[in-house]
Simulated scan of single mutants.
Amino acid sequence: MKPIRYERKIYTPGPTPIERLSRLSKELGGPTISIKRDDLLGLTAGGNKTRKLEYLVADAIRQGADTLITCGAVQSNHCRLTLAAAVREGLRCQLVLSAPETGDYNPQASGNHLLFHLLGAEKIEVVSADKDLLAEMDVLAESLRKAGRKPYLIPVGGSNEVGSLGYMACAEEIEQQAWESCTPYDYVVTATGSGGTQAGLIAGFAARQSGTKVIGVNVSRDRAAQEAKVLELLQRTAAWVGLEGQIQPEWVQCEDRFVGPGYAIPTEEMVEAVQLVARTEGILLDPVYTGKAMAGLIGLVREGRFGRDDHVLFLHTGGSPALYTVPELFLPKV
């Protein structure tokens, strides 16, 4: 037994629901599409990082940490949820944020940046986009250690071996829900960025000897770079839980055709996807992750990637606060 898989906090009282997207499926005329509502996970406004933080925060507490330090973009869902977990556990939290590659940094921004202040981040350090975020976190950590405090560093997206355990658990949850509903899922489609969600899902399905394939839709990087990133984390996670030798590199599939000009830069396909899901199913996606991931799923359906009898599960990784930072994308033109 690997006890690390059982050492976690619990921020969500039960499994997140899976809903059939009947109207979207009919609109696209393709496979049967369902959605796993990880936007309904616990902590402030939910999202996939909650699953990773259940393990990461438990590890931090086990090590006696009093402060969480993490990093991300200025509208980072991961930073919001890490801060919320710190509040829940009575820990302090410091954030290193990367300024946008395009446009100016707005310290009065809404969305997640507003929530960082509302939730009471102890310190917010904003650095230029070309800075090494891990190195900047190390600087903060060293300062805390000199003050007699015990920081715990969490990488971008919570994506390391410990964080990936959250999506191994999710894969097991999906398998249980598939069994209960008599609906095996041929594919899971998810946004892929820091890689922990995709790596954890693949490892979890492998542990269950499931035939479900995982397709990651890139939100940054080209296909080769993203697949290498996910595979490296997948192999480390597999070794961590005792699945050495059971992972095949071809299980890592990433689609890079829906990134557009770059990370967090809107595309027409993303806007269409967000509007289509809102108007057919009443579900909000976000412009950075799930909007581009759904654009990828829609594009793959239109290309005939899936059979009409396939069951495709879209993983909703959260992030809807970011919608309110770009209202001009979705309001009628005047």
Rank of each mutant, 00 (worst) to 15 (best):
I202Y: 00
E244M: 07
R236W: 07
G193I: 04
A199L: 03
G211K: 14
G195M: 10
R221C: 11
V217K: 09
G193W: 07
G195P: 08
Q226V: 11
V230W: 03
T237M: 03
Q235I: 09
D222Q: 08
R208G: 11
G200N: 00
A191K: 08
T237C: 03
G193Q: 07
A203R: 05
R221H: 14
G211A: 11
L231K: 08
R236L: 09
W240S: 14
G196Y: 05
W240P: 04
D186I: 06
V217S: 01
Q226P: 12
A178D: 11
V241M: 14
R223D: 06
V189Y: 05
V214L: 08
E175D: 13
V241C: 14
Q198N: 10
A206R: 14
Y187N: 02
A239D: 15
K229P: 04
A224P: 10
L233H: 06
V230N: 04
G193P: 07
C182R: 05
A207L: 12
Q209F: 04
D186L: 06
E227F: 12
F205L: 00
C182N: 02
E232R: 15
L234N: 06
T212W: 04
L201P: 03
V214C: 10
V219W: 12
E244C: 02
R236S: 10
I202E: 00
T190C: 02
R208N: 13
L233S: 07
G200K: 00
L231G: 05
V217A: 04
E180A: 15
V217H: 01
A225H: 10
S220H: 09
Q176D: 15
R223Q: 15
Y185G: 02
A191R: 08
K213A: 03
Q226M: 15
N218K: 09
E227K: 13
L243T: 04
A178I: 10
R208H: 10
V188D: 00
L233W: 06
N218G: 07
E232V: 08
R221A: 14
T192S: 02
V214S: 02
E180C: 10
A238R: 12
W240Q: 15
A206I: 12
A178P: 11
V217R: 04
Q235M: 11
L243E: 05
V214H: 04
V188K: 01
Q209A: 08
D186A: 10
E227D: 13
S210N: 11
A199R: 02
E180V: 13
R223W: 07
Y185W: 12
L234M: 07
C182E: 09
Q198W: 08
R208Y: 10
R236N: 09
A228M: 01
A191S: 13
E227Q: 15
V188T: 03
A203V: 13
A207D: 07
L243M: 09
Y185F: 06
A199D: 01
I215C: 08
Q226G: 11
A228E: 04
L231W: 08
D186H: 11
